[in-house]
Amino acid sequence: MNVFRLAGDMTHLLSIIILLLKIRATKSCTGISLKTQELYVIVFLTRYLDLFTKYISFYNTTMKLVFLGTSISIVWYMRYHKVVKQTYNKDQDTFRHYFLAIPCFLLALLIHHEFTVIEVLWTFSIYLEAVAILPQLVLLQRSRNIDNLTGNYVFLLGAYRALYLVNWVYRYFTENHLVRWIPWLSGLVQTTLYADFFYYYIKSWKNNEKLQLPA
């Protein structure tokens, strides 16, 4: 564990906590893409298959349970909670997320470290996480005013993978130049997808104005 990865995990955890707080406190999920949240549940389920078979550390197991639990509860709130589900922008959140999942799965079948169920699904989760934010970014462009909590949520979500990129650079130089192309390239794509959001988020923060993404 290094400080960059710990900061990345904490940023990731904070983003999820902020989203849960927004939903529970305001009883609203306006501006949040259910498609993206469902993709994240698939990412965690396919990535943490070895949760009960391989013990790495107390921290690792705890965080996996927290990420699984919170992401599933967010989808539950948005789908089934009687008040929250009324606030879901169903007609704007129209991104066909299967168009993202299927190519990622096919790619995982083609490019992976080893051809086992666990490894192919883990690789699928890495590819899927890279593009899972797209429905959310599309929804942000469609929704006129983005509330602060939603903006902060997306920013922290993008920041966590950027910190993981730094963690991978650090590990490359400190752990006998271990090369890990699949997470590296996926993480690079993932962080790059946030580039224009980061630009408008920082601009709105500097000028102290409402966050607005160009249509």
């Binding site: 990865r5 690792n60 993981y164």
Partner: peptide
């Protein structure tokens, strides 16, 4: 092994 070393992240 390299395998182990790469799966200790979330």
């Amino acid at each position: 092994s390299e395998e182990e070393a790469t799966k200790d992240e979330l």
